[in-house]
Amino acid sequence: MSEKEEGRPVNEQRRQILEMLGEGKITADEAERLINAVEREQPESPPGAAPRAKTRPKYLRVVVHSEDDFNGPSRVNVRVPLQLLRAGVRLTSLIPPQALTEVNAKLNKSGVPIDLTQLKPQHIEELIEQLDDVTVDVDDPDTKVQVFCE
C-alpha cells in the first residue's frame, strides 16, 4: 500500500474497498482480506505513545481453490474461531477412558499407532496457542491450499 494510502483514515480506505466490492471489481473474500490488511496496517497508537502489544489472531482460516475438469472449479473457505478449537479440546477431557481405549485399538488396527490417553488437554492447548504463527501454503498446478490464522 502506498504512503498516501497509509496516511488516509482507515474508515475511508474501508469505504473504498466496500465500493470496489459493490462495483464487482473484487470478490467478497478479497474485500475481507483487504479490510483485514488495512486494519493491520493502522497505526496502533499515536506517535510518542508506548507501542501496544500485537493483536492476537482470532480465527483459523482454511482456503482451498481447485480446478477440476470433470466437476468444474471448486472453492472451500472455512473460518473457525480459535476459541472454538480450545472449547473443543476441553470437551475431549470428558471422553470416558474405556472409549479412548477402544479408539486406540481401532487406530492401531488402521495403522495409526497413536495413544490418545497420553494426549492431555493442556498439550493440545499449547498446540493451539502456537497455531498463531502457522501458515501452510500448498501450490499445485490445479490446487491451491492455504491454512493461516488471522
Partner: peptide, 18 residues
C-alpha cells in the same frame, strides 16, 4: 463444555463451492 462450544461459535463461516 457444551456452553463453551456454543459461546465460541459466533464468527464461524463455512463456504463450499463446486
Amino acid at each position: 463444555g457444551t456452553a463453551q462450544v456454543l459461546w465460541a461459535l459466533p464468527g464461524s463461516r463455512f463456504e463450499i463451492e463446486q
